[in-house]
């Protein structure tokens, strides 16, 4: 193990060592480099940077889109701090993210292990990805109908088996778990594929050595697979947590925030304030807060899970 690690470290050190070139040469590359970066850069500036800057500006204004934005300083933020619906939306979103990420990551890890060790057929591996190929809205509507209280097929089965019907979308207790499960179903194949790629990157001789040392399957999983998979898992978590915080389409086409306030997730609340109630300043301010929350979550995940270092080094 140690020699191995040294080898790879020295190899990476060699490749990363700076080439002895003058600054003259680097500047000569600059123009060409800019040319190649430009297509991505223009898209990034026009579609990301400018809207973000404008969004931040609008968050300090009162703006109903048809008139002109009017500067109100911190008013929106002060109002948000005292807005029970905002805090409710944070709690609801938190509940959704917790359920969604927990189930999705656990199931995806299981699926990835199966793909890696058992299901080697391309067809089966491809099938796992099928729900992800469906649009979010279609998946949500499909389940909306199947889980309908009165005429849904799932409730028909529940009734046949002698249990009372469940108002999957109508009950305050069920609405968020239902939607978290639908999106788990849709995304776990894709997440599994990412983790699967991480599993394939773990060199097989590590497992061989473990086998020789007489490690059990569980020991191998706990002490080899998980630590070596960590950078990929962290990346997957960062991406899925951010995606999960931004849940919107499922809610928009099914419960639209209800019953009462049970599914008014933060993105839906932003949409409601901005596009339904024409309060774009307030909506932008919540969006800025969400942006800060997500940046913080991503930072914490990267920092404490050491996502940018690999134990393979």
């Amino acid at each position: 193990m140690t020699t191995l690690a040294k080898h790879s470290r020295s190899a990476s050190a060699a490749s990363a060592s700076p080439k002895p070139q003058g600054s003259h040469r680097r500047l000569g590359d600059l123009k060409i480099a800019l040319l190649f970066i430009a297509p991505a850069m223009i898209g990034f500036v026009v579609f990301y940077v400018l809207p973000t800057v404008r969004g931040i500006y609008l968050s300090f204004t009162e703006y109903n889109i048809l008139g002109d934005p009017e500067w109100v300083g911190m008013d929106n933020y002060v109002a948000i701090a005292a807005d029970p619906l905002f805090w409710n939306s944070l709690a609801v979103t938190g509940q959704y993210v917790f359920l969604n990420i927990l189930l999705q990551t656990a199931l995806a890890l299981g699926l990835a292990l199966l793909m890696h060790n058992v299901a080697k057929s391309t067809i089966i591996r491809g099938t796992l990805l099928l729900p992800y190929l469906m649009s979010n809205v279609i998946a949500a509507l499909l389940w909306f109908w199947m889980l309908d209280y009165q005429i849904g097929v799932v409730n028909q089965f529940i009734e046949w088996s002698g249990l009372p019907r469940v108002a999957f979308f109508g009950s305050e207790a069920w609405a968020i778990p239902t939607q978290a499960l639908i999106n788990t179903w849709r995304h776990m194949g894709y997440t599994a594929l990412l983790i699967f790629a991480g599993l394939q990157a773990i060199p097989s001789h590590v497992y061989e050595v473990a086998k020789l040392d007489g490690a059990s399957a569980f020991q191998t999983f706990r002490t080899i697979t998980i630590p070596l998979l960590r950078p990929v898992l962290v990346l997957v978590l960062v991406v899925t947590v951010i995606g999960s915080f931004q849940v919107f389409d499922t809610v928009a086409v099914t419960t639209a925030g209800g019953p009462v306030n049970a599914t008014r997730v933060i993105q839906y609340y932003i949409y409601q304030r901005a596009f339904t109630e024409s309060d774009f300043g307030y909506g932008s301010a919540i969006a800025v807060i969400l942006f800060l929350i997500l940046a913080l979550v991503a930072f914490i995940q990267m920092k404490f899970l050491k996502g940018n270092e690999s134990d393979l080094d």
């Binding site: 909306f144 109908w145 889980l147 309908d148 209280y149 009165q150 005429i151 849904g152 019907r165 108002a167 979308f169 109508g170 009950s171 305050e172 099914t254 419960t255 209800g258 019953p259």
Partner: peptide, 19 residues
């Protein structure tokens, strides 16, 4: 019907289904 059971199918369709 309880409000929670009305999320989904429209009231008119439920009427048509004899509910």
């Amino acid at each position: 019907p309880k409000l929670e059971t009305t999320v989904g199918a429209s009231m008119a369709d439920t009427f048509a289904a004899g509910k």
